[in-house]
């Protein structure tokens, strides 16, 4: 069953069309790669579906419900979560408290219940010493915290915006396994933006390719990576 669908989703910034008539859908349990060269509109696309910015045209549906202009905090409540490329841990809150926020506000849990839930999530993601200040975490721990924070919304759709960036090969492998596990256990629909094609190949069931805001290809990674338009997009038309 399709969880999230967009129809002709478009966002213009002044004269620039950052996302241009993108139609796609994401199914339960599916890990979808969102790839494309720099400036292709990947992050803008995630910002649109998570409600951080509003579309100029088009439609977004979540489980058959029109959410095109729904505010971001309400989308968090109905089951859409995401991480950010630039992670800003909440200062003055401990690691555990950072992971409580989604439970408290997206799920409306009491502080006590949220604490319990956050402890569970941190254990699941292999995070320890939960009263630490987030500034003391390693980069891998920060990424795990960011995922735990998103999961505290108890989402059905999760977007990961370059969550593997800055990790070494072992750490990346580690985090790929984690994402696969949480996605499978929760039957999550996961949208993954990554620049490292190895990650996309291993992690995703299907990819969509954006170039200059347009969806130019769609399908399994092996297929898409042979698509001449995709190769051209990545090589700047030199091929």
């Amino acid at each position: 069953m399709s969880k999230l669908t967009t129809t002709d989703l478009t966002r213009r910034f002044m004269g620039l069309v950052a996302v241009n008539k993108v139609s796609f859908s994401m199914d339960e349990g599916e890990i979808l790669g969102i790839i494309g060269p720099n400036g292709a509109g990947k992050t803008t696309f995630i910002n649109l579906v998570s409600g951080i910015i509003m579309p100029t045209e088009g439609k977004i549906e979540y489980k058959g419900r029109d959410i095109t202009y729904m505010p971001a905090h309400e989308r968090a409540r109905i089951g859409i979560a995401r991480t950010y490329q630039l992670i800003h841990p909440l200062e003055n809150l401990s690691l555990l408290e950072n992971v409580m926020v989604g439970s408290i506000f997206a799920r409306g849990k009491s502080l006590k219940a949220a604490r319990k839930q956050a402890e569970k999530l941190c254990a699941e993601l292999g995070l320890e010493n939960l009263d630490r200040d987030p500034s003391r975490l390693t980069i891998l721990e920060v990424k795990r915290m960011e995922i735990a924070k998103a999961l505290s919304n108890e989402p059905e759709v999760l977007f990961l915006d370059e969550v593997m960036a800055g990790l070494n090969a072992d750490e990346t492998k580690d985090l790929i396994a984690t994402v696969q596990k949480i996605a499978k256990e929760r039957k999550l629909a996961v949208g993954v933006v990554e620049h490292v094609m190895g990650v996309i190949r291993e992690l995703t069931h299907r990819v969509i390719v954006l170039e200059a805001g347009e969806l130019i290809a769609e399908g399994p990674y092996e297929e898409v990576s042979k698509n001449t338009r995709v190769i051209e997009a990545y090589l700047g038309g030199a091929a």
Binding site: A72, H73, Y84, P89, E91, N92, E97, V101, I104, F105
Partner: peptide, 25 residues
């Protein structure tokens, strides 16, 4: 001691990420 602490701290840190966690700023 209440949810105010989490809401206000989240808003002060980063409003965009607060919204994503369901905070009605």
């Amino acid at each position: 001691k209440s949810k105010f602490h989490f809401a206000l701290t989240a808003i002060r840190n980063n409003e965009v990420s607060a919204k994503t966690s369901g905070v009605n700023i």
